[in-house]
Simulated assay, not measured.
Amino acid sequence: MSINLKGYTVLITGGSSGMGYEMARKLLSHGATVIISARNEAKLDKAYKQLSSEGLDVYAVPIDVSDEKSVTEAVAWFEKHFDHLDMLINNAGIGSNAPGMENLESNHHFYDIPIASVKAIVETNFIGYFIVSSKFVPLMVKNGRGSLIYVSTSTNTMTRKGQLPYGPSKAGAEAMAKIMAEELRDLGIMVNVICPGGFTDTGMAGTGVKEFFQKNNMEILQPTVMNKAILFLASSDSKGMTGEKIIANDFDEWLKNKGIEFDN
């Protein structure tokens, strides 16, 4: 039986492209109302027009996740248009595409990274997750239910050579998600982490890295890799599930190990 998400409201940061856009499209295709957000308003408008042209129940609001004022304004806009938020997906992130990182050699050392780049990555991937959660989660608490999703990366990426500061920024976000899962458990809010489980072809991936994977015949995941997992987390099949980390590329095996049958 197909999952019916009519009446289910989702807000996703970084929703104008890549995995965020594909997750939005997946949830929309099952009847959800989805608000996509992004910092780049031109890209956001293009994504909104594409999805709305397909007759989907989509809205768009610009958000710079690292800017508290921007997030606060988005909350005010949301409250004018909607009376509940069922799922918040913290997906906006930057890495090798951060300003100042584009000119670094592939074999660079951590001391070659501009401090401004480090700040930008941490402000988006860690502080941004906190700001967005702290502003939007109270809407869920008010209704006594909700699902908070953190998009992360594979555990080995967090400490692998060459992954400063991206890896640690995601490790910090995962630790934050674990703490929030415990704090929100008794308030009816589920908090879970999902990650693709490998190199994924998105705008955050540098051209050089993609070429390296192609040259060495290594697997490159597509942005749609998260779709089945995010649909599961939006469905009633995941009710009460919190504090989990789901590797999207191994999602079917994860379901099997949990003894869960999921029809999407």
Rank of each mutant, 00 (worst) to 15 (best):
F136V: 04
V65K: 01
K69Y: 13
I94E: 05
E22H: 10
S169L: 05
F251A: 05
A171G: 12
L27T: 12
P165E: 04
N257A: 08
K119V: 13
G243H: 08
I3G: 05
E54F: 07
G100T: 01
K245D: 05
D250N: 08
G14E: 01
I121E: 04
P99H: 00
E41L: 09
I36M: 07
M158K: 13
T159W: 09
V141G: 04
I127K: 03
V71F: 00
L221M: 04
M23H: 10
M158N: 06
K258A: 08
C195S: 11
I220P: 01
G167P: 06
F213I: 07
I220Y: 11
S37P: 02
I230Y: 09
N4M: 07
G14M: 00
S52R: 11
H109Q: 13
W254N: 08
A92H: 02
L187Y: 11
N97P: 01
G15T: 00
D186L: 11
K228E: 08
L28M: 12
V225K: 07
A234M: 11
S52Y: 15
N192V: 12
G55C: 06
L184Q: 04
L221D: 07
Y150A: 06
P114G: 04
T9M: 03
H84M: 07
M140L: 13
L5S: 02
E182P: 04
G172K: 01
G93S: 03
S106R: 14
F262L: 13
T33L: 05
P223Y: 05
G95I: 01
Q50A: 15
Y150G: 07
L255H: 03
G93M: 03
E182S: 15
G20L: 03
G240I: 06
N257R: 13
E253Y: 09
T200E: 00
H108P: 09
A205H: 02
Q214V: 09
Q222A: 12
I115R: 13
H108S: 14
E182Y: 03
P138Y: 03
K80A: 13
A74E: 07
E102K: 09
D112C: 05
G208E: 07
S147Y: 12
S134Y: 07
G20F: 11
A120I: 04
L255K: 05
F130W: 11
M190G: 10
F78N: 09
Q50T: 14
E174P: 01
N156V: 12
E174M: 14
M190N: 14
L88V: 13
I113E: 10
N91A: 02
N103L: 09
T200G: 01
S2Q: 12
F78L: 06
I35R: 01
I247E: 12
A177D: 02
E79H: 15
Q163G: 10
W77H: 05
A175P: 00
G259T: 14
F199E: 00
I260L: 11
F251K: 03
G206N: 07
S134E: 12
I121P: 00
Y166M: 06
L11T: 03
T157W: 15
E253V: 13
N257M: 13
T224N: 09
L231N: 14
A175D: 02
S2Y: 09
